[in-house]
Amino acid sequence: MGQKNLIIFLDCGDTIIDEGTEIRDEQDTVIHGNVIPGADMMVKTLAERGYRLAIVADGSAQSFKNLLTQHDLYDCFETLIYSETIKASKPSVRMFKAALGAMDLSERDCSRIIMVGNNLSRDVKGANQMGITSVFLSWTSRYPKVPADDLEVPNYTISTPLELIDLVEKLNHQLDVHVS
Rank of each mutant, 00 (worst) to 15 (best):
Q3K: 12
L6N: 02
I7T: 01
F9P: 03
L10Y: 05
L10V: 02
D11M: 05
C12Q: 05
T15S: 02
T15C: 04
E19M: 12
E19W: 13
E22R: 12
I23M: 10
R24E: 12
E26P: 00
H32A: 15
N34R: 13
N34S: 14
V35Y: 00
I36E: 02
A39Y: 03
D40Y: 03
M41W: 08
M41L: 14
T45D: 02
T45Q: 08
T45C: 01
T45W: 01
A47K: 06
R49P: 00
R52Q: 06
A54G: 06
I55A: 09
A57H: 06
G59C: 07
A61W: 15
A61N: 13
Q62H: 14
S63E: 07
K65S: 11
N66T: 13
N66C: 09
L67Y: 04
L67V: 04
L68K: 03
D72W: 03
L73V: 02
L73G: 01
L73Y: 04
D75P: 00
C76W: 07
L80C: 12
S83D: 09
S83G: 12
S83C: 07
E84G: 03
S89A: 14
K90N: 09
R94Q: 15
R94K: 15
A98V: 10
A99I: 05
A99P: 04
L100C: 03
L100E: 05
G101D: 11
G101H: 09
L105C: 06
E107D: 11
R108D: 15
C110R: 11
R112G: 04
I114F: 03
V116R: 01
N119R: 15
N119P: 00
S121P: 00
D123W: 08
V124D: 11
V124P: 07
G126I: 08
A127T: 11
A127W: 09
Q129D: 15
Q129R: 15
Q129S: 13
G131V: 08
T133K: 12
T133Q: 13
S134H: 13
L137D: 04
S138I: 06
W139F: 10
W139M: 09
T140Y: 06
T140M: 06
R142M: 11
Y143N: 08
P144N: 12
K145Y: 05
V146Q: 11
D149G: 06
E152L: 08
E152A: 13
Y156S: 07
Y156A: 06
S159G: 07
S159F: 02
T160W: 01
L164F: 00
L167G: 02
L167V: 08
E169R: 12
N172P: 04
H173P: 00
L175A: 05
D176F: 03
V177W: 01
S180C: 10
